[in-house]
Design a protein around this nucleic acid. Structure first.
Lengths: 355, 355
DNA sequence: GAAGGTTTTGCAACCGGTTGCAAAAATGTT
DNA sequence: AACATTTTTGCAACCGGTTGCAAAACCTTC
């Protein structure tokens, strides 16, 4: 029995092995000479205990180094304070910021993120079942690419769910917080037109993703108002550097490329920028690029990407807020929270033209 | 009681509210007309049940959509399959890869990562207590900057812990997996000397971090063998782009800067590269840079950083492996696993000199 | 078909907590 | 001091599972 294993061994022997036993409620009750309920009550807030009792119990508890077992507690309270944090964006640098803020925000509210990495093969059903088996209080689905049906799996399993970075809908059937991708597309188009670009390209993320579709729709709509503008478009395989680079290389090999591109995402944009530079062309003099997200890296001076900022801090705060309110009121009416995006001007688009 | 809330409502009424009740063992037992233990046994592998019984139970279970509650189970089995994944590196892009691989690796083994974001203010004790309250089976501390004492808090609380990306020690007092930072420092110095650089700089990460210290030690040692070489050194405030950029700006403003720098980390290197470019200097013709980590971004064509690869996949696999083996044998002898690093040649150092 | 061995099953206690209820103690009122 | 009221406390049942043990059921074998 190594000495380092103090403080608390109420050791018991099995197969010649000493095990570290956790201190339980009973141990404290015994030491303090009070009932189990008394101990329980001093550790659940809102319960009635006299100050004498509380002192006695707390003394015994601290002497033994006791702290209550949350999981055992959850059995009767039906609250684990565990929140499933589900995502499939483990390759987009933006999501490190997202995870950072989610974990911090949840922790600040006494909630614990159970992280689920949804790789392609893992199916919705099994993740949902697993999260149910762990009795999570709720699930936050943080992804702009997962189909809406995914979140519904959780909802149908009776678990409060908020869909973060999901598709905006005017008639949401579950909590959803994010941006209006159609509006973003429009904004990007407007920005490009405003700077006098005529031959304009849309370099989207994965075609099936709703975020890609919506951005394209908005982009198209805006361009249609300007008959002088020429639209070309294509999609990349993923929201990744390589995909963006590859697609831009393909475009540059073609007969003629656009004067400026709206890329589906910053990391895609950075890939495209790399391809442009490799081809010996300059940004913004030869080709303009506008991205979307404004991840930290985009502001780095050697990247300096003009982009549309997605207010992730607000999205995350709102998501957590909605989750917390759902925990209190599970049948809360589904709500969509949409945050406005804004163009962040840096160095990859030419200056606005006077015309 | 909304229709979407099927499949399973054994509804009960409270304050006029319908609640979704989880299906329990008892429900299944009742429906199948068998004992509770029978149901329990069909769902715990290694238990003896006749095939008849199993069929009966499984039929009833699937009819009700039952799956066992892991947390209740954990009360008697003393296994939650929850693993605390603790880190303070939520700003280094490398760690997105780290989280991706950790979560996937743990999931593949049926373990669940409970993510803990250790911001500066949160203290070790309280995180340790919290993880204990959730009865995690083990804790993986993934950080190259946290002091070793931190991991010891968990160990002293009786929780199996492996320190990933931690400081190598020839006499480890807990499981530790990572690289030999002294050797890395040496390797960097050797590489720079080999390329004929004479005036050589060490641009370290945060000075107090053991990883910084060790890299510096190795770097220094190697340089001492070459009296013709001149060493200068400084430290940045953090492993971040901004810190690297700022420090390099400071160096460039100085009377004379080194011909080549070993930066404590890739993201630091990228910041330094940015500063160099902004100053109108070229890499590698004016200044050489070698980083450490080889995160994905370093291979991007527009960054193309020569660096020392830290084999994160192997480190993570080994960490998980050690954790799994500790779960089976908690008093396993502490072990240090050290993986070799290798120089990845790209475009930020000049070619080796023949001399 | 009975004896003997093996497997399957159910009972009941337990894991570490919480909580409704009634008894006990403390407090207030006259 | 006697009584009514409020607060505090302990008992015992419960949350949703697991498991040691003994009884029951099933196989062999003679």
């Amino acid at each position: 029995m190594p000495a380092c294993r103090i403080p608390n061994i109420i050791g018991f022997q099995t197969m010649g092995e000493a095990w570290l036993m956790a201190i339980t409620l009973d141990d404290v009750a015994k030491l303090a000479g009070v009932s189990r309920s008394a101990v329980s009550r001093t550790f659940t807030d809102g319960a009635s205990v006299s100050s004498k009792m509380r002192r006695k119990v707390e003394k015994a508890a601290s002497e033994l180094g006791y702290s209550p077992n949350f999981l055992a507690r959850s059995l009767t309270t039906r609250r684990t304070k565990l929140i499933g944090l589900v995502s499939d964006n483990f390759h987009n640098p933006l999501f490190l910021e997202v995870f950072d803020q989610f974990t911090r925000g949840l922790q600040d509210r006494g909630l614990r993120p159970l992280l689920v990495n949804l790789s392609v093969e893992t199916d919705a059903e099994s993740s949902a079942r697993m999260l149910q088996q762990y009795s999570v209080d709720g699930v936050i689905v943080a992804s702009s690419t997962l189909p809406p049906a995914f979140s519904k799996t959780f909802r149908d399993a009776g678990v409060p769910v908020v869909n973060s970075f999901g598709r905006y809908s005017s008639d949401p059937d579950m909590h959803i917080v994010g941006i209006d991708n159609i509006e973003c597309g429009r904004m990007a188009a407007h920005e490009l037109l405003n700077r006098g670009y005529k031959n304009i390209g849309f370099l989207g993320g994965p075609e099936p993703a709703t975020s890609t579709q919506d951005r394209f729709t908005g982009f198209q709509n805006e361009l249609q108002k300007h008959p002088e503008a020429v639209l070309s478009y294509s999609f990349s395989e993923a929201y990744s550097f390589d995909a963006g680079r590859k697609e831009m290389q393909r475009l540059l090999r073609g007969a003629s490329h656009a004067e400026a591109y709206f890329c589906g995402d910053d990391v895609l944009s950075i890939g495209a920028l790399s391809a442009i530079k490799e081809a010996g062309l300059n940004v913004p003099s030869d080709i303009g690029i506008i991205g979307l997200n404004d991840m930290q890296m985009s502001g780095w001076q050697n990247i300096n990407l003009t982009t549309i900022r997605q207010p992730i801090a607000q999205i995350i705060n709102a998501s957590i807020e909605l989750m917390v309110s759902m925990l209190e009121k599970p049948d809360r009416y589904p709500e969509a929270r949409v945050f406005p995006c804004a163009v962040i001007e840096r160095g990859t688009l030419r200056a606005p033209q006077e015309n």
